[in-house]
């Protein structure tokens, strides 16, 4: 079943044509990896899915992005969209407040009050992000004083707290050390049970390790899209083969 259906998507930043005729469908409860060299449009595509590109001046979009059959750009409330489609950024960006307030920010934004309910959400989210055991005794601690890996898992917990259906991850481990990276990878795989995950990564081994489907982008075009195993073992396109064997990029 397709969660996202992207139909003939074109995107321009000013006069720069950043995404060219991209069509792909993203399956529910799977991990889809977007790979490709820098500037190929993979992060741009990710940001069109929760409309974070709206912040970019001079950004113009044609084509359709359907979330469960509903057009994301057809008058959907962005606040509601972003509640359904959460995002984890490349650089961990916890707010400069306590661990608890970070996780509770989303639910509070969507009108949830009451300490008992918030306590429950905070605990469940931190557990889901596999960081509860580390942080349960310091929920009042300033989030900026956590380590980079903890900050990123806190950001994942924060995204999970609003109970999204989809989780967008923009190179979530590129700023982290190998141990934190592998913990986040394990976490992402375990989250697949409940969430549709789309992850942008520079790291091809990472894509091969954790994703079910992989899309390879080059210069704004979707070159190849298919099952991860097939794409890495038997790429159909010469350009994909060159990229995954490290001949450029």
């Amino acid at each position: 079943m397709a969660k996202f259906e992207i139909e003939n998507l074109n995107l321009w930043y000013g006069s720069h044509h950043a995404l060219k005729h991209v069509s792909l469908s993203i399956e529910a409860l799977k991990i889809t990896a977007l790979i490709g060299p820098s500037g190929c449009g993979k992060s741009t595509l990710l940001k069109t899915l929760n409309r974070m590109n709206d912040l970019v001046e001079g950004c113009r979009i044609t084509g359709r992005v359907l979330l469960d059959g509903q057009d994301v750009y057809g008058g959907m409330d962005t606040s509601l969209l972003r509640r359904r489609v959460g995002m984890v950024f490349q650089k961990p960006n916890p707010f400069p407040m306590s661990v608890y307030d970070n996780v509770a920010f989303g639910p509070r934004t969507h009108g949830i009050r009451g300490k008992a309910r918030l306590d429950d959400i905070v605990e469940r989210s931190l557990r889901a992000a596999a960081i509860w055991d580390e942080l349960k005794d310091c929920l009042k601690k300033d989030a900026l004083r956590l380590s980079g890996g903890q900050q990123q898992r806190l950001c994942i917990a924060r995204a999970l707290a609003v109970e999204p259906e989809v989780l967008l991850m923009d190179e979530p481990t590129s700023a982290l050390d190998p141990i934190s990276t592998s913990r986040i990878e394990d976490l992402v795989v375990s989250l697949k049970q409940n969430y549709t995950i789309i992850i942008v990564t520079h790291n091809m081994q990472q894509a091969a390790r954790i994703s079910d489907r992989t899309a390879f982008f080059l210069l704004g075009e979707l070159v190849e899209y298919g099952d991860t195993e097939k794409l890495f073992s038997l790429p159909r396109d010469k350009r994909t083969e060159n990229y995954i064997t490290g001949r450029f990029g």
Partner: peptide
């Protein structure tokens, strides 16, 4: 990134500005 983080959680511009 703070502002974007708040927006990505579904906060409006006003809420992101005043609360974050």
């Amino acid at each position: 990134s703070y502002y974007e983080g708040a927006l990505a959680l579904g906060a409006t511009h006003e809420r992101a500005v005043f609360r974050v």
